[in-house]
Design a protein around this nucleic acid. Structure first.
Lengths: 190, 190
DNA sequence: ACCTGAACACCGTTCAAGT
DNA sequence: ACCTGAACACCGTTCAAGT
């Protein structure tokens, strides 16, 4: 089997899911492919770039454009959260990739387009989309580390239902804020 | 000079400011103090704990409780951002420390108390404070990596004014969302 | 073109031994 | 009590050399 970028990304994802970001090392990815670590550097210039490809895989994962255009910001946020929760430490991977300016899948594109389609100006839509994205990433990041700590028995237990409520509340606040700024005419809650 | 936890934290902060989080290693901190790396482990059980102490220092830094109680959420957010921008990679340090459940300074306490003082229920205030905090941390995290990348010449340049506008816009959206929920029908979190 | 072998310059952490 | 010396088990990355 030839070593391809895709196979490397898949192996990296498998390690991420099974052991977490801390154990996602070039040596372990190589080992999972029956290859030496140095071989990976023919396909990726460095670890960061590989991680960015993993982030892209996470964000693009499953249905490509399954969400109908009728969906609102709340649905988008919920779907992004689901996608992140599907892979261990995914929020951290995406957040750091994003911060470094890497990754070709921009998770803020959809909300930005949704807002623009409803008449919001370019910069304003950008700001709103970023606010949503920062909230989702921050929330899921904390969610994933907390649940991980609970699994390790370091902390009592992780209350998933409570976390879900906090997420919904945050999204609702953001949604309400957007509504208010638009004069409540362009957007609908729900 | 005796090696104390405080001196170690100060040395770590100095390295953080000068070289960034990537270069904040136990060995370098020790070197800065004219001591061997192993010595640090008599004062801190591990690197994470030292980093948590650094996060506390960053958050508590300067005026302890200088902000008057008359300040609103916007002022709090602006001050937190300022504090984070004062140290390189500070947002990342605080975010990861927070996610791990470490650190004794809780940056969400003030906004939570402010909201509670205005009659918001406990869980609701929690959710709102978290939404604000996630946004601020996410925003500043990206701000700091972007400006860092600009310094390294990797990316064209960092537009501070634009970033400031985005921050203000995000805070305003959140503020508007909170206002709306306080004014009209209360959001039910359950 | 694609991968191995082997090294380089690091890490965090531990712990006997010194003082 | 507090720190050194020295090791252990790793890292990411590079690159001559093999095929």
């Amino acid at each position: 089997m030839a070593l391809t970028a895709e196979r490397i990304v898949d192996a990296a994802c498998a390690i991420l899911d099974a052991y977490g970001l801390a154990d996602l090392t070039m040596r372990r990815v190589a080992e999972g492919l029956g290859v030496k670590a140095g071989a990976l550097y023919w396909h990726f210039p460095n670890k960061q770039t590989l991680l960015a490809a993993v982030a892209d895989e996470i964000l693009a994962g499953g249905g490509v454009i399954d969400s109908t255009d009728e969906d609102g910001l709340e649905e988008w946020a919920a779907k992004l959260r689901e996608r992140l929760l599907a892979h261990r430490d995914a929020a951290e991977v995406v957040a750091s990739t994003r911060a470094m300016g890497l990754g070709s899948v921009d998770p803020a594109m959809r909300p930005r387009n949704m807002l623009r389609a409803r008449g919001v100006g370019a910069e304003e839509a950008d700001g709103m989309a970023q606010a949503f994205l920062h909230f989702v990433l921050g929330h899921v990041m904390e969610e994933q580390t907390q649940s991980q700590l609970a699994t390790l028995g370091v902390v009592s237990s992780f209350d998933g239902a409570r976390s879900q409520r906090y997420f919904d509340a945050g999204v609702e606040i953001l949604q309400a804020g957007v509504l208010r700024q638009l004069g409540g005419t362009h957007l609908r809650i729900e």
